Simulated scan of single mutants.
Amino acid sequence: MEIDEATRKFNEIFNPGLLEETFAVLKEQKRFVYYTSSDTAMKLLRNQELWFRNATVMNDFSEVSYGLELIQSVFSGPEGKRFREAVEGIFPDTISKADALLSEWERDWRLETYIACVSVHDRSEDQRGRLSMWRAYGDIALVVNNTPMIAVTDLLAVYSVPVLYLSERELTGYLSNITDNILINRSYLADLGQSVLVTYIHNMLFRFAIATKHPGFREENEWRLYYRPTERQSPMMKKEAVVLNRVPQIVHKLQLTNDPENGLYGADIPSLLERIIVGPNEYPYVSYGAFVDILTDLKVEDAHNKVVVSDIPLRTS
């Protein structure tokens, strides 16, 4: 995984900890897991596509809104003032330019961000899954390798980022680290010019907005895949109007295939899927057989060993 120097420096200053978390996925060969319903899992596998839904209809009703509200609260406080002073000390009027840009894009961030959510999967969960996720998201867990998640490319126009689980106090501390980094790298940022600094602040705020959740969700250990069609179109996305949970809505469907020319690396089902965990339900043997059958149809090797039944003794009704 190679990252250019400008990207590395931006993240070190404005996204402390992000590169370390990303490289840890590589070094420790971490996998990801997608908890969902049996119906959705079947459709994903058969159609070989992952659906990205509008952030306003996700399970956590405060997606995006929580981050934006946190920004307003923290940046109006003492640490926000210190941040503004550090930035204005490099280029006067930078904050007003960043505020104007935020005002221009805030509504679009809320309404035109499409998301798919996965969690980091621990090896201790291979046989049972995660109880809290079964209770919240469905009865099937698709465990996948990390190759598509850590590919660094703009070709696909789909990006992944680990979620920040922050309270107001925690974001204040996180912002303090960023301000310290700005002060340390003052000369470097000055050499880049004001327009670049405004863009960097805008990108920092964007991550806070679309990838910050209440700390009560921390055990999910989520990474967020996001797509912003109003900013950039993806050649691998198919837009479609559907009805889900009785709500008419637009979804964007990402084709799961191996297509490096368009930014997809090892995303075909046989390469991507590491295992399926059938969650607690009334008919685990029947569910097991159905998923073995569909994997066999997809030419997934050793299909009967890639589907396991969770051993958590949870009643589902």
Rank of each mutant, 00 (worst) to 15 (best):
F217C: 06
D99A: 02
Q194H: 05
Q194V: 03
W109E: 01
F14A: 11
D93H: 13
S124N: 08
A267E: 08
E21R: 15
T36V: 09
Y227H: 14
L264W: 06
V161N: 15
A116G: 05
V163Q: 10
N47M: 11
N181P: 03
A190H: 06
E282I: 03
T172V: 00
V87H: 05
L189D: 00
I250G: 10
T7F: 00
N281L: 05
R169A: 10
R275H: 11
K306T: 00
D4V: 15
Y165T: 01
F291I: 06
P284M: 11
L298R: 08
T153E: 15
I95Y: 03
V118M: 04
R275C: 10
Q48C: 09
K81P: 01
I150D: 02
N221W: 01
T153A: 07
G193Q: 06
E125S: 05
Y114C: 02
R169G: 11
P280Q: 04
E168W: 07
E69C: 03
E301A: 11
E168N: 10
Y35L: 08
A267P: 04
L131P: 05
I184M: 11
E88D: 10
N54E: 07
V152H: 12
S287D: 11
V198S: 07
L102K: 02
K239A: 14
V251C: 14
L298W: 05
S124T: 12
T212E: 02
I140G: 06
A116R: 13
Y114P: 11
R107F: 06
E168C: 08
S124M: 07
E5D: 14
V144C: 02
D311C: 08
V57S: 09
Q194I: 07
D139I: 00
V144N: 03
L254I: 10
E88A: 12
M42H: 15
Q194K: 15
S65C: 02
T56I: 12
L18H: 14
V143K: 03
L26H: 15
N15R: 13
V242W: 14
A267C: 08
S187T: 09
I269G: 12
E79Y: 02
N11A: 05
Y114A: 10
A157W: 06
E170T: 00
N185Y: 01
L225I: 03
